[in-house]
């Protein structure tokens, strides 16, 4: 049993680290990072991962080794000690500093993404002039663009379902709303998640760095159809964005809706 216990316990750090090291090869890792702050989040994740991995390896190996070494058949007594004040001080102070370092490293990125002060003030889209209002409801996504006048809630607003089209390499601010229950707007490639809260209008910003079409996932349980509440975010060039708006306008007003 002694050897089995040792092998089981030592397998935890070995296979644990191996799994993380080879995860990217199996595609069990981050999807590509396609927003300006996505690399920051990945960096912070990895930063914590390395600090954690160090502690993980040291403690798990020590555990396996102690169990192996001190479970040998012996007839003398164990070491009689009630602890060590010095060791307690060391292993309180060092992790405390490390944890505070981790905590303070996180703050800038979070403030940049979620704080009002982090929102873009230059450029076409700001909190006052959002690119669109995104509405979540059971179980679909709808987008309302402000149209020619740039003001939401006027007669020239344009609506689209399922797909949210944004220009590439440009700060984009949108308003997130929900019509019924709580949903969450999540695009894995952008590393961005924000709950849509009924009764609230929540501003969200990002800057997509690569053209393409990405899954928009609902990340908060919203009912039986939660699993299929999908949408797309399509990132296009500035010209294509203008063309899309014009196209949408033509479709919207030719449907006899106005």
């Amino acid at each position: 049993m002694r050897l089995i216990a040792f092998l089981l316990l030592i397998a935890v750090p070995i296979l644990g680290v191996y799994t993380f090291m080879t995860a990217a090869e199996h595609n069990w890792w981050f999807p590509p990072a396609y927003s300006t702050f996505a690399p920051d989040i990945d960096w912070l994740f990895n930063f914590i991962m390395y600090m954690v991995a160090f502690t993980f390896i040291v403690t798990e190996v020590a555990l396996a080794w102690f169990v192996f070494k001190y479970s040998a058949k012996r007839h003398d007594k164990g070491v009689f000690t009630h602890g060590s004040h010095k060791l307690e001080m060391i292993w309180t102070a060092i992790p405390a500093v490390a944890l505070l370092v981790i905590a303070f490293t996180q703050m800038e990125t979070f403030a940049n993404i979620k704080f009002a002060s982090g929102f873009p003030t230059q450029g076409r889209f700001t909190r006052e002039k959002p690119i669109a209002q995104v509405w979540a409801s059971q179980f679909d996504w709808r987008v309302r663009y402000p149209g020619d006048d740039g003001v939401l809630g006027t007669v020239d607003d344009l609506e689209a379902a399922y797909e949210f089209v944004v220009p590439v390499n440009e700060d984009v601010v949108f308003e997130l709303r929900s019509r019924d229950v709580i949903h969450s707007w999540f695009v894995p490639e952008f590393r961005l998640k924000q709950d849509a809260l009924p009764g609230h209008t929540i501003p969200v910003w990002f800057n997509a760095t690569k053209e393409g079409s990405y899954d928009l996932v609902c990340a908060e349980l919203c009912g039986w159809g939660h699993y299929k509440m999908s949408g797309r975010v399509r990132v296009v060039s500035a010209q294509e964005f203008e063309a899309y708006q014009a196209d949408l306008k033509a479709k919207w007003f030719s449907n006899g809706k106005e």
């Binding site: 935890v12 912070l44 981790i102 703050m107």
Partner: peptide
């Protein structure tokens, strides 16, 4: 002993979730 070994993993992975910017991605 299994508890100690497993609690180390559960405890350490909690730091990711506590970190606000990382949690924006890994929440839920």
């Amino acid at each position: 002993i299994g508890f100690v070994s497993m609690f180390i993993i559960g405890g350490l992975s909690g730091i990711w979730m506590a970190a606000t910017p990382v949690d924006i991605y890994i929440h839920d």
